[in-house]
Design a protein around this nucleic acid. Structure first.
Lengths: 339, 339
DNA sequence: GATGTTTTTACAATCGATTGTAAAATTCAT
DNA sequence: ATGAATTTTACAATCGATTGTAAAAACATC
C-alpha cells in the first residue's frame, strides 16, 4: 500500500511537483485549469498530504499541549471538551497529559511536550507545584503558555480563571446571612491561588460582619472524598459545633455532609453547607448543595481561544488575564431562613 | 533562538552528523568515548531531537488517535485517563477527539485522524453510528483500529468490552430475587451492542423465571438526565405500576428516581431500582443505587495496552476481543428483603 | 515579426534525522 | 613492519512538501 506523494501526481500529469504543491493549496501562481487537474488527480489517486514533511519544512508542529492535574474529574473533562472543540476547529491537534497532582510528573510532561515541539501549552497546575521553572524553556522560546483555573502569576503567561475571592466572599456572606456565626472553611493547599483566594474571600466576609477569623475553623486537606470524611470527624470532635461549613469543592463537601448526617447532624438546621463547582452530584445529594457555578466547558473554550489567537498573532498580547463569570447557586443545604 | 541540530553538534565535535545521530541512540557502531562526547555536547548545547524530521524519515507519526462520543462523562474521563497513562509510558502521543454522539462528526474526526497519519485508532462509537465504512481506510492500510465499550464486530478490529449480557442478566435476576415481577427496562439505541446485549440479558433473566417480556415495559431513549425525568412520567402513567426498574446507565436512573420520589413513590418498597456504571453519584443518591461496576480506567488501560502491543508487533494478532470483569453492586435502591 | 508583458511552470535547495555502504583508522597477529 | 581483521567514522541518498528564482510559454502591442 504505497502512499501517494505530490511527485506521483506530478509524474502522472507531466508537470513538476512544485506546481502540484502550489496547486493543492490555491496558490495564485497556478492556472485554474491546471489546478483542477491537480486536485482531481489527487482525489482520484487517494493522495493525502504528509503532515510530517510539511511540518518539517514549515517548522510548525500544529500541536497544542495540555497538562492538567487529572483528566477524570467532572470539571476537568468539561474543560477538555471545551478545549477540544476550539482547537479542532482551528485545525490544531491536541496532546493531552495529566500530572496526577504532582509537580514531578508535571515537569516530565512539560519536557515531553517541549521535545514534541508543541506550539502552545495550556496548563492547570498540580496540587504541589511551587514554581514554574519547568515552563521556562517554553517562555524563552516564546511558545505561549496559558494557565487556566489553577494559575500562576508570570508576566509572560496569560491566565483564565474565575474571581475566586469574590465567589468565596459571596458564599460566606450568604451563610452569614442565613444566621451562621461559626463557619468552618475546608480547603486545599493555600499555595494554589484558587484556594488562597477562596480563603481570603472567606476571611473578608467574616471581617465585614465583625466575625473574628478562628484558626481552628480552618481545615486544609486535599479535598478528596476521603478527606471529607476525615473533616467531618474533625468537626464532630470540636468543643462547639460550627453552624456553617464552606468547602472549596463539591466532592469533599458531599462526603462530609454524608458523614455528618450519619452522625445525626441535621443539614442545614444544625450546620449549613456550601460547596464549590456545581458538580452534577450537588443536585443529587440530600439536601441539594449550595455551590458556586462556573462552567468548565466555557473555561476550556476561553483558554483555547486565547491560545489560538496568540498563535495566529491576533492582537491579544495585551490580554493578560481573563476572568470568567461565576455565580452563587443557593440550594437547600444552606437555606435556614424561609423567604 | 536557533534550534540546535545534529549538524551543529557534528561541527562542534568535528565529526559527522551520522555519527552524532548514531551516538545519540546508543548505536553499537559508535565508540563509547565518542558517544559520551556527543551526549555531553548535546546536553550542553540544549539539543532536542526534531520529531518531525525523524518521523518523516522513519515514516512513523508516533501518534495514537482516540475518538469517543463525549469526553465529559464520568466513565469516559476514566477511560481517557487510563489510555493516557499507557500511551504516554509507551512513548506515543495522543490525539483525542469527540464525536458528540453523531456519526457525522465521527466520520470527519476519523478523516482528520487519517490525514494526520495516526498509527492506531481507539474508538468508542457514537450513538447513531450504523456502520463503520469510515474506518475502512485505516483497515485497508493495516492501521490497527481497536473498539472499546461501544464496539462493532469486524474481523480486523479487536474489541474491549464487558459482558453486558451477563451483567444485565445478573441485575435482572437480582431484582427478581427481590420480588420484582414487572420490571421496566430503560435503555438506548438497540443498534449499539452494549444496549442490545443488556436488553438480551434482561429478557433472558425474565425468561428464566417464567416472566413474560412485556413490550410496554421497554423504554428506549438517550439515557440522559432529561430522559430519566420523561421516563419517570411515563412510568407514572402506566395502568399498573411496575415494581422494578433496570436502567442502562446511572445518570438516567438517578434522575428517574428523583422524579418518582417527588411523586411519592417509595424506592425500593414500591419500585426497586438498578442502574449501570457505578458512577460516583450512585453513592450519593438516596437510596444509594444498585448498579454494575466496571472500571473505565481499566478499560482504557486494556484498550491502550492492546494497541501498543499491536504496534510493537507483539504476538497479539489472535486476540480479537477482551472481556473485562464487571460486578453487581447491591445497594439500598433494590433491597427489599432483609438478609 | 520583433519586442515587451504577463502568466505559467520547472529547477533546485531546504527542513533535520536516518542508514547502507564505503573508506579510514585502529588493533592484532605474525 | 606488513598484511589481515576489526572497529570506527564519513559520505551521500532518502523521507515529502515548500518556495525563491529562473526559465519558458503565452499573449499583447506596434
Amino acid at each position: 500500500m504505497k502512499e501517494i506523494t505530490i511527485y506521483d501526481i506530478a509524474e502522472r500529469l507531466k508537470i513538476s511537483a512544485a506546481t502540484v504543491s502550489r496547486g493543492l493549496k490555491d496558490d495564485p501562481l497556478v492556472n485554474h485549469k491546471t489546478k483542477k487537474l491537480i486536485v482531481d488527480a489527487a482525489e482520484e489517486m487517494g493522495y493525502r498530504s504528509n503532515s510530517m514533511a510539511s511540518n518539517l519544512r514549515n517548522k510548525k508542529s500544529n500541536i497544542i499541549g495540555v497538562i492538567v492535574p487529572r483528566l477524570n474529574s467532572n470539571f476537568m473533562s468539561d474543560v477538555i471538551a471545551g478545549i477540544e472543540k476550539v482547537v479542532n476547529d482551528a485545525n490544531y491537534n491536541l496532546f493531552i497529559s495529566q500530572s496526577l497532582e504532582t509537580m514531578k510528573k508535571e515537569t516530565s510532561n512539560a519536557k515531553a511536550m517541549f521535545n514534541n515541539r508543541v506550539e502552545g501549552l495550556l496548563v492547570s497546575l498540580a496540587y504541589d507545584t511551587a514554581d514554574i521553572e519547568h515552563f521556562e524553556p517554553f517562555i524563552k522560546r516564546k511558545v505561549p503558555v496559558v494557565f487556566f483555573d489553577r494559575v500562576f502569576e508570570h508576566p509572560a503567561c496569560p491566565q483564565i480563571y474565575i474571581d475566586n475571592y469574590k465567589a468565596a466572599r459571596e458564599v460566606t456572606n450568604h451563610l452569614i446571612d442565613q444566621g451562621c456565626k461559626r463557619i468552618v472553611h475546608i480547603t486545599a493547599n493555600l499555595l494554589r491561588s484558587v484556594y488562597s483566594e477562596r480563603f481570603n474571600g472567606y476571611k473578608k466576609a467574616l471581617e465585614e460582619h465583625q466575625l473574628e477569623f478562628d484558626d481552628n475553623l480552618l481545615i486544609v486537606n486535599d479535598l478528596s472524598s476521603q478527606a471529607g470524611i476525615a473533616a467531618a470527624e474533625q468537626i464532630l470532635k470540636m468543643p462547639v459545633l460550627p453552624d456553617g461549613v464552606f468547602v472549596a469543592n463539591d466532592l469533599c463537601a458531599i462526603s462530609c455532609i454524608q458523614t455528618l448526617k450519619k452522625h445525626g447532624v441535621k443539614i442545614p438546621q444544625d450546620i449549613a453547607f456550601a460547596g464549590f463547582n456545581n458538580d452534577p452530584t450537588t443536585c443529587v445529594v440530600e439536601p441539594n448543595l449550595t455551590t458556586i457555578n462556573y462552567k468548565g466547558y466555557e473555561m476550556g473554550e476561553a483558554a483555547a481561544k486565547l491560545m489560538v489567537a496568540h498563535l495566529n498573532n491576533y492582537d491579544v498580547k495585551q490580554m493578560h488575564s481573563v476572568v470568567l463569570r461565576s455565580e452563587l447557586i443557593v440550594r437547600e443545604s444552606s437555606l435556614r431562613k424561609k423567604n
